[in-house]
Simulated scan of single mutants.
Amino acid sequence: MARNEEKAQSMLNRFVTMKEQESKKPKERRPFLASECRDLSEADRWRQQIMREIGRKVAEIQNEGLGEHRLRDLNDEINKLIREKGHWEKRIVELGGTNYMRYSAKMTDLEGNIVDVPNPGGRGGGYRYFGAAKKLPGVRELFQKPPELRKRRTRYDIYKRIDASYYGYRDDEDGLLEKVEAEAEQIMRAASLADWREMEEIKKEAKRAVKSGEVGSAAKILYEEEEDVVEEERKQREQDEKEKEKEFVVHVPLPDEKEIERMVVEKKKMELLSKYASENLVEEQNEAKAMLNIQR
């Protein structure tokens, strides 16, 4: 009994499925050429269908574990769909619809920066890479920026940056240098004025001592003048010693011009003798000079 019910139920299911398929319209295929479409709403519908297919394939290409061959195939399919989408967008514009090409997305690299699309053919929008296809060997190099070469500055560029501030002509414009110099100038003026007043007082006391016959203050003045002379002599002596150290000291006697001329003539004479005279003759001549005590 149960077996018969199952058969009847399966037959009923097949009958219901058949009736549903008959009531449905036959599935339409997208036209091969966008120019065959004459209806704007139909063209927009086909464009939306292509966009959904592109979205599915772009989501699938994000998976890096698909393998190099599958990633390249997916990337090719996406580029093919993008070209087809461009044809439908042009057809929509021709039929008086919205110009979707103005809002097309830009291509980005692995860091999200917008880059130019590599297009060796020079036609269309160029070949694009999506998802994990950007990391394939031979593709990653397309998105790498060349290293920036640091341009060497020329002499003209260096001189162009030199102004009055480089030579220190504007150091006092901020007002800080004037304050520091004013304080230092006051201190130096006060010290110089104190020394001058002390010397004036000593000179006055020396004059009074000379007139009155006292020698205490005069001795003090003479002692101070003697100290100044000794200090000047010591400085002069140190300066002379430094200059002597800088001078070049010759530790061997140097020949004068006559001696150099004689040595040159002697050398030329020996060269001529060695060229035209025999060795025995040269030895006899040397022996004769030695016997006669002739140095030349």
Rank of each mutant, 00 (worst) to 15 (best):
A2K: 07
A8P: 00
Q9L: 06
V16K: 08
E22M: 14
C37D: 01
D39L: 03
L40R: 08
L40K: 06
R47P: 01
Q48H: 07
Q49G: 04
I50L: 15
I50H: 02
R52Y: 14
A59M: 11
I61P: 00
E68G: 05
R70V: 09
L71V: 04
E77L: 05
E77R: 07
E77I: 07
N79A: 10
N79H: 11
K90E: 11
V93I: 11
T98S: 03
M101F: 01
S104C: 07
S104T: 12
S104M: 10
L110T: 15
G112N: 04
R128G: 02
K135W: 04
K135Y: 10
G138T: 14
F143K: 01
E148A: 13
L149K: 15
L149F: 07
K151C: 09
D157S: 08
K160G: 05
K160P: 00
A164C: 05
D171Y: 06
E173I: 07
L177C: 09
E178G: 12
E178S: 14
A182E: 14
E183F: 11
M188Q: 14
R189N: 07
A190F: 03
A191W: 04
W196H: 14
M199L: 15
K203T: 12
A206Y: 00
A206E: 04
G216C: 03
S217W: 02
A218L: 15
A218K: 03
A219R: 09
E225T: 08
E227Q: 05
E231Y: 01
E232V: 12
K235Q: 09
R237D: 01
Q239N: 05
K242I: 04
E243V: 00
L254T: 15
E259H: 05
E261Y: 02
M263I: 12
K268S: 08
A277E: 12
V282G: 02
E284L: 14
E284K: 13
A288E: 06
A288S: 05
L292D: 11
